[in-house]
Design a protein around this nucleic acid. Structure first.
Lengths: 160, 160
DNA sequence: ACGCTTTGGTTCAGATTCGAAAATCACCGC
DNA sequence: GCGGTGATTTTCGAATCTGAACCAAAGCGT
């Protein structure tokens, strides 16, 4: 009762949820249509390609992808089988390992990128005016920061 | 090259993708923490509870949930096992069947709703000012309409 | 009424995902 | 240096999801 949403905000919430789910599935479909990559595959390739040395620790990658640890293991194994990434054990910390982008992976990414960008643009980006871009950026960067903080806080219960 | 995104829009895109993924997983976790429902379960219950007669055709449900047909079958079967919904064959069209909300399902929904609303509010909604709500609503309703239209168009290739 | 195509749903096999427990190694104080 | 504690990743089993094949009923033309 006391915590019901007013109609405007309820409509906002629902529109966001539904459209986002549609958009994510559409992006998946597009990506699979003109490359051999899933959205997750693509995202991994992008992150690695931008990382120094084109390599990242598993934990770091999982954090940025918002993947559970076990999902990341499966994901990387799958990409490893297809030759897109390699797994190397970390020199500094022998507990950890890191994913490294291969030449084939980079090539695949360069191949897929234009298609994906086009897909992102036609489905959402080109349809936004400057004010909307500014608004979305502000909202979602704030949201991302907060959710990241929440997660860190709950994993580190250094409270009180 | 010619289709690269300017930095503002790239940042916008990435912030949206990452924050949304975080938000969706957070909502799942919250929901599971204080009820026995997944986000999909909850969504099904909401749609049924608002439908006339608290019943919906499978196809209709699949369309609104953005689920593949087989996924919906699985989803409903699972909820049926738990007594949240019942399956009845449609009188008008004997091919079809419809999902009906049970008393237990309605009760479960009423139980879970306040928690979920609270979660939606603390993670996103309460953090938005009125202008942002208006902006998001406008953007995502437009996006939803367009994606729905795209999908209908591709399934009905009544072109030319 | 009879074939043919289409539509609404399900089933099945296989791929993907998750959570929990285990394995591996690092770090710290003694 | 040794045992305890913590961090990082993998393994394992169960749950979920997908696409393709399938079935039964409806629609349509003849």
């Amino acid at each position: 009762m006391t915590d019901s949403l007013d109609p405007e905000r309820l409509a906002c919430w629902r529109a966001y949820i539904e459209a986002s789910q549609r958009l994510f599935t559409q992006l998946e479909d597009d990506l699979r249509a003109d490359s051999e990559l899933s959205f997750a595959d693509y995202h991994v390739l992008v992150l690695l390609s931008e990382a120094p040395g084109q390599r990242l620790r598993m934990g770091e990658l999982a954090g940025r992808l918002v993947f559970s640890p076990s999902r990341l293991t499966y994901q990387i194994s799958s990409m490893q089988k297809r030759g897109l990434v390699a797994r190397e054990s970390c020199p500094d910390d022998r507990r950890g390992s890191e994913a490294v982008l291969t030449a084939a992976g980079l090539l695949t990414l360069r191949e897929a990128a234009p298609h994906h960008r086009r897909s992102a643009r036609t489905h959402l980006i080109d349809d936004l005016d400057d004010a909307e871009v500014a608004c979305l950026t502000r909202v979602f960067e704030r949201l991302g920061r907060r959710l990241r903080a929440d997660r860190d806080a709950s994993s580190t219960p250094a409270d009180k």
